[in-house]
Structure formats: structure tokens, C-alpha cells
């Protein structure tokens, strides 16, 4: 028991277990009817029964999330670099970006269905719209926080622009970029589901919609569980990539010491 409590990975699962028990107890104590909140066991049963369907519906949602995330990075990083290096671009583009963030994505999502039909494209765009902003903000911050004296030193060494970028600026900006990408990927999951809500006949968003229509609350909760699993798995994957790419960063130093 002691080792289970102290092992890092077991802790969130233990917390989930505690929460499930609390959930079950409160349903019994407050006599909450099943059509409002289902009991955890019912959700687990539904999860078990519908597992193959849920899993196959998770695939399009995951693809849409990854597509939107990839687009966020591919579009967001160059824009962020332009903003970071050019005050002129910053003054034109940044306020517009911030403004665009206040537009409710859920409200404009139906437009994409009108424009692009029922395929994967409107979902990817919805995921991109949610995931793109954190990538830009953190990348701008990363490239702006580069030590000026280091740039001066490199200039006195006769550094080319490429050397400056790959040997100094990019590595320096990576930690901030990763923290933005981690926020981005979890938001991209939300975006993909929003896209599926408004116009799709596949994906976890579609399952949610359908279960809602049928008052199948256990299935709805089961779909939510799958959804958070997608988010967690993608987040962890990104975290692993981060650890491989910037093991030197302050946030990883403890284990870095242990392995070095």
C-alpha cells in the first residue's frame, strides 16, 4: 500500500477511485434519480458494453484533434515568430488575434459545415481555432525572452542567421512552446467535439449528441470518459516528446540528474 501511494503514476488513479466512491455515495445519500446523474457502476457497465463502438468512434475524433493541433503548430509558430521579431507585424496582427479569440467558436462552427460539408474538415478547423491561440502566445513569449547578451555574443562570433536561430533562439524558445502546445492539444480535443456536435455522423461528439437525444445518460458519461482519455493520452505523448527534446529544462532536472 505504501509503495502504491508513493508511486507517482498511481496517485491520479487513486484520486479517481476516491471520487468515484464519493459520487456513488452522494447519489445514494441524496437520492439523485438516475435520469439526472447515473451511478458510476452503470457508466462502467455501459463503457464495457459499448467499448468497441466507443473505440471506433474515438478514432475520427482523435484524427480531427491531431489535425487541428498540427495545423495550430504549423500556422501558429511562424505567425508567432513574425510577431516576436517584428514590432510592425505585432502591432497589426496581435490585437486582431486577441479579438478573434473572443468570437465564440461554438457559434461559428455551423458555418464550417455549410462551407466544407460533413467530413473531417469542419472538425479540424474547429480544433485548430481552439488550439491555435495558446501556441501563438507561448511561442511569442519564448522567442521574446531570449537573452540579449547571448545574441550579442553570437553576433561577435560572426553568427549567421541560421546559426543564431538553430543554436540559440529555437532551443531557448522550446520550453515555452511546449507549454503552449500542451494547452493547445487539450483544447483541440474540445474543438473537435464541438465540430462533431454541429455537423457530423461520426466521432465521440456524435455519440454524445445521440446519447443525449435518447436520454442514455450512462452512455453519455461513458463517452465523456473516452473523451478525457483521448485528451490525457495525447497530453502524455506530448509530455514524453518534451522530455526527450528538452531534458535540460528546469522542470525536468530532477529526473535528468537521475538518468545523467
Amino acid at each position: 500500500m505504501k509503495t502504491l501511494l508513493t508511486s507517482q503514476w498511481a496517485r491520479p488513479f487513486l484520486l479517481i477511485l476516491v471520487l468515484l466512491v464519493l459520487w456513488d455515495i452522494s447519489i445514494r445519500v441524496f437520492a439523485i434519480p438516475a435520469y439526472l446523474v447515473p451511478a458510476p457502476l452503470e457508466v462502467v457497465v455501459q463503457l464495457w458494453r459499448e467499448w468497441p463502438m466507443l473505440l471506433s468512434q474515438a478514432i475520427p475524433t482523435t484524427w480531427a484533434t491531431l489535425g487541428g493541433f498540427a495545423l495550430s503548430v504549423v500556422v501558429g509558430v511562424p505567425i508567432a515568430m513574425l510577431i516576436a521579431y517584428s514590432p510592425l507585424v505585432e502591432s497589426f496582427v496581435y490585437p486582431l488575434l486577441v479579438f478573434s479569440q473572443s468570437i465564440p467558436k461554438v457559434a461559428v462552427a455551423p458555418l464550417f459545415v455549410v462551407w466544407f460539408g460533413f467530413g473531417i474538415i469542419p472538425k479540424v478547423i474547429a480544433a485548430f481555432l481552439l488550439g491555435f491561440f495558446p501556441v501563438v502566445v507561448s511561442t511569442v513569449m519564448g522567442f521574446k525572452s531570449i537573452e540579449h547578451d547571448m545574441v550579442d555574443l553570437a553576433r561577435s562570433m560572426g553568427s549567421s542567421r541560421w546559426q543564431m536561430f538553430f543554436k540559440i533562439s529555437l532551443p531557448q524558445a522550446l520550453p515555452a512552446m511546449f507549454s503552449g502546445m500542451k494547452v493547445s492539444i487539450t483544447l483541440a480535443v474540445v474543438g473537435a467535439v464541438v465540430g462533431e456536435f454541429v455537423g457530423s455522423n461520426s466521432g465521440i461528439g456524435y455519440v454524445l449528441q445521440k446519447a443525449n437525444g435518447n436520454f442514455d445518460l450512462p452512455l453519455m458519461f461513458a463517452a465523456l470518459v473516452i473523451l478525457s482519455m483521448i485528451g490525457v493520452i495525447l497530453f502524455v505523448l506530448l509530455d514524453v516528446i518534451e522530455r526527450m527534446m528538452i531534458p535540460w529544462h528546469a522542470s525536468h532536472r530532477q529526473e535528468f540528474m537521475a538518468t545523467a
Binding site: D149, M150, D152, L153, S156, M157, G158, I246
Partner: peptide, 18 residues
């Protein structure tokens, strides 16, 4: 412009963390 045939030590160490 930046002079190449000098060695510079700044007030801070200015090292690359990685």
C-alpha cells in the same frame, strides 16, 4: 558592426542551459 577578433566576457555568465 560586431567585431569578430575580440573575446567578450559580459557582466553575467550568459551560458546556454542546454
Amino acid at each position: 558592426g560586431p567585431q569578430k577578433n575580440v573575446g567578450i566576457v559580459f557582466q553575467g555568465a550568459v551560458l546556454l542551459a542546454w
